[in-house]
Design a protein around this nucleic acid. Structure first.
Lengths: 220, 220
DNA sequence: GTCTATAAGTTGATAGAC
DNA sequence: GTCTATCAACTTATAGAC
């Protein structure tokens, strides 16, 4: 307590966390240009000069927020392995993605905004780690298809579809809410959304019987 | 030619069109806050005071761009009528949406940005015309499902999925391009994307045989 | 209708006391 | 490490000559 130098930056770590949390919220609402340091500082409960003390510039704050988000994105445990069950792997991925979208909508929005503006800060990540990951998993999926374990679906585009189908509930929540007649989405909405996406994708990949359609007789 | 007052504002109409085209591009790239009147003026090839002469304020320019886009959105001829063939109606809608996305990606991006920021300008449209449209078409779709003409899919969420699946190719083109190893998407990419979305959705709605999966024997 | 010059306001960033 | 005061740059919008 009296020691002038405790473990390196315990206070620093805490304050940086507070700032990043506030920044994620503000960047999600207003985008990079629209967000102001004053607004972030207000939300973080400290004068804006402190933000500059900890991060230097506005871009650095933004980069830190993005780095935080990319960790979330990559931490998703995916089960796309040759021996896995395609249906289980896809279900698990969709559920994980949807849970992340529901729990961290602001993270999704900051990411969406960055992409929408041409990804000036995370272009390297997209062309590097993300591209490699998709390439890897696509090999696995092509293997499943060749083995007749799922319908012929373009693996890369399947990933685009999965991202779009799940993240749309955070990025465009305003639109979804307006159409459903609510101001924002609750747990029940997300449960329904998850069921819907699971059904659509699993059936779309031939991993589910096309139930609810009248069973055609076996012999034409 | 010498008449001081020809048909009302022929020049005006032309110049407003030039400005709106430039504005759509700039707003798509930079968002509302990020875009500057100077940049729009430069792209439109006129001094920025002219923009104020024609539209008054920056917000008015933005509103005009959005109004232009909403026309496009609603002009989509949809064939969701009780007697229509579900498969044909869905195919047509997907193809139209994807064509619009490919031909006017900037329009999609401006719209996406507006939604992402909480739709401050078009909230009324979302809660009014759009909600009514979706409600209407959902009744039709529920009729198809009750008649056993397609699989049980939540109609409202189906629309969210269709919008997400198609517009993602414009809004997040940077991500798609990075994963596919290109700097931007060409006609071949859009053809492939359309095929993919058609397959996924039609099969997902039970409107297509789950081909490419080994046919299970008729009797278990 | 078109253009240059400029006013008025906002924002990122820093200086310097504590 | 924290805070107040302030600077410098930028942006919207307008005034007023042509």
């Amino acid at each position: 307590m009296s020691g002038s130098r405790g473990r390196v930056g315990r206070i620093r770590q805490q304050h940086e966390g507070t700032i990043l949390k506030a920044a994620e919220h503000v960047f999600a609402r207003s985008g990079f240009q629209g967000a102001t340091m004053a607004e972030i500082a207000l939300r973080a409960g400290m004068p804006k000069s402190n933000l500059h003390y900890y991060f230097g510039t506005k871009v650095e704050v933004y980069r830190a927020v993005l780095a935080h988000i990319l960790e979330l994105w990559l931490a998703e445990t995916d089960r796309f392995t040759p021996d896995a069950d395609p249906r289980e792997a896809l279900s698990h991925y969709i559920e994980a993605k949807m849970r992340l979208t529901a729990e961290r909508p602001d993270a999704s929005r900051v990411f969406a905004n960055e992409l929408l503006h041409g990804a000036p800060e995370i272009g390297d990540y997209l062309r590097g780690a993300l591209r490699a990951l998709v390439a890897d998993k696509s090999v696995v999926i092509r293997g499943w298809i060749a083995a007749g374990r799922m319908a012929a679906v373009d693996p890369e585009h399947l990933f685009f579809s999965l991202w779009a189908l799940t993240q749309t509930y955070a990025d465009f929540e305003t639109q979804v809410g307006a159409v459903l007649g609510r101001s924002n989405l609750g747990p029940a909405d997300y449960r329904r959304a998850t069921d819907h996406v699971l059904n659509l994708v699993l059936r779309g990949c031939g991993l589910m019987p096309p139930a609810a359609i009248e069973e055609p007789p076996c012999s034409t």
